[in-house]
Computed example of a mutant assay.
Amino acid sequence: MIELQSGQNTIGILPETGAAIAFWRDGATDILVPVPDPNLEAQHGVAVAGYPLIPYSNRIAQGQFSFNEGNYRLTPNMRGETHSIHGNAWEHEWKVAQHDVNRAILYFDHKPETERDFAEWPFPYRAVLSFILTGDALQIEILLANRGDVPQPVGFGYHPFFRRTPDMRVAFSARGVWENDAAHLPTALLPSTGKWDFSKAQRVDTLNVDHCFAGWAHEARLSYSDAGYDVVISATSIFDHIVMFTSPEKPFLALEAVTNMNDAIHHPEVLDAGLTILKPGDALSGTITYHIDRNMARAS
């Protein structure tokens, strides 16, 4: 494990477990909570507090897609699912390029050479994650480079598990929310009104949500009034979608800044689906910042 520290702010990173975050703490307080998920078999039961979504976020329906006259079939990578989920970078060991007291840079090269490699993702790429820790923030930069000789359709994001408490509230503005079918695939874009309006903070304790929001304002706030702090999530403009996943029986809320809508590759009719066609030699990057706003929790 790599450990970074800045003041009372500490984080553990697991290169061998897909560059996942092992923990993130502010003093004795868990900002992110480690969660073991036996359905993510490649994590081998290791409890993680966050992991990267590369080279796409969320689902590709039935693990199948067509692109540039090619037809591709991916191996489902979550137990009990027929879809492929969250790319393949989280399934592999990453290498450490740089590591000092408050910064770490890790990278992963996907080189599809075997049938199994192609079934994970048929195009070669390099992914780079930069973690920077300050006294009150964690910054994660994601870079994805096309290392092949043909274009490829890509997206990315990060999947953090925030500690869920009875007093926790969540707030962000978005243009709309994607309604899901029984297979958790998007069917229609609904306006962010009524129960989907998070522009004013909503309590988390009763939420049961697994949805992708489109056109969010690139800033969200998680409030812990009893503990006296907020976490403010901000992201660069490439992250035009945000996924919320939580339910009353879960000890966490996942609020994932991502570039693409769920199953974006099957929705060419959606102009802002967020899928990027990355040309050979080109790279795509963006930054997510998680800022601890101490003693500033706001009641709504």
Results as ranks from 00 to 15, higher is better:
Asn88Lys: 01
Ser300Phe: 14
Phe123Val: 05
Asn71Arg: 14
Glu81Cys: 03
Val177Gln: 01
Arg164Glu: 06
Gln139Glu: 15
Ala89His: 08
His110Tyr: 07
Gly70Asn: 08
Ile105Gly: 02
Gln98His: 15
Pro248Trp: 06
Val150Gly: 01
Gly87Phe: 14
Val177Ala: 09
Ile238Ala: 14
Glu179Ala: 15
Ile60Gln: 04
Met261Glu: 07
Glu81Arg: 10
Ser57Leu: 06
Gly155Ile: 07
Asp293Cys: 10
His83Asp: 14
Glu219Arg: 15
Lys279Thr: 14
Asp167His: 04
Leu40Val: 01
Glu256Ala: 09
Leu53Ser: 01
Gly80Thr: 07
Phe172Glu: 11
Asn262Cys: 15
Asp149Cys: 00
Arg164Tyr: 05
Met296Thr: 11
Thr165Gly: 10
Ser300Leu: 13
Arg126Gly: 01
Pro112Leu: 08
Pro248Ser: 08
Ile142Lys: 07
Thr259Tyr: 05
Gly228Ala: 02
His86Tyr: 03
Asp282Gly: 04
Gly70Trp: 01
Pro268Val: 11
Gly27Gln: 07
Gln64Gly: 03
Asn262Leu: 10
Gly63Tyr: 09
Asp37His: 06
Phe245Arg: 03
Gln98Ile: 01
Phe65Gln: 08
Ile2Val: 13
Leu4Thr: 05
Met261Lys: 13
Ala22Ser: 07
Gln64Asp: 03
Asn71Ser: 13
His218Cys: 05
Leu255Pro: 04
Gly135His: 04
Leu255Thr: 02
Thr246Pro: 07
Val232Leu: 14
Asn262Gly: 11
Gln98Gly: 05
Ser285His: 15
Leu129Thr: 01
Val204Ile: 13
Ser199Thr: 15
Asn71Trp: 04
Val35Gly: 02
Gln8Glu: 15
Pro36Cys: 12
His218Phe: 01
Arg163Ala: 09
Thr10Gly: 07
Phe131Gln: 02
Thr246Ala: 07
Gln5Ile: 10
Gly70Phe: 04
Ala183Arg: 11
Leu278Asp: 08
Gln98Val: 02
Arg294His: 09
Ala183Met: 04
Ser6Gly: 03
Thr165Asn: 04
Asn208Met: 03
Leu275Lys: 10
Gly274Ile: 06
Arg103Thr: 13
Phe198Arg: 11
Val154Cys: 05
Asn88Met: 14
Pro151Phe: 00
His184Cys: 08
Tyr51Trp: 11
Asn180Phe: 06
Gln5Met: 08
Asp210Val: 09
Leu284Pro: 10
Asp263Phe: 09
Phe252Asp: 10
Ala49Ile: 03
Phe252Asn: 09
Gly27Met: 09
Phe162Tyr: 11
Thr206Ala: 14
Asp205Ser: 11
Ser199Asn: 14
Ile11Gly: 00
Pro76Asn: 13
Pro122Cys: 10
Phe213Glu: 08
Thr187Ala: 04
Asn102Lys: 08
Ala22Asp: 02
Ile288Gly: 03
Glu179Met: 09
Ala183Asp: 13
His159Val: 02
Asp136Lys: 08
Val101Cys: 06
Phe156Asp: 05
Ser223Gln: 10
Phe161Thr: 03
Ala47Trp: 08
Gly228Gln: 01
Leu189Arg: 15
Gly215Asn: 07
Asp205Met: 02
Phe239Lys: 10
Asp210Cys: 08
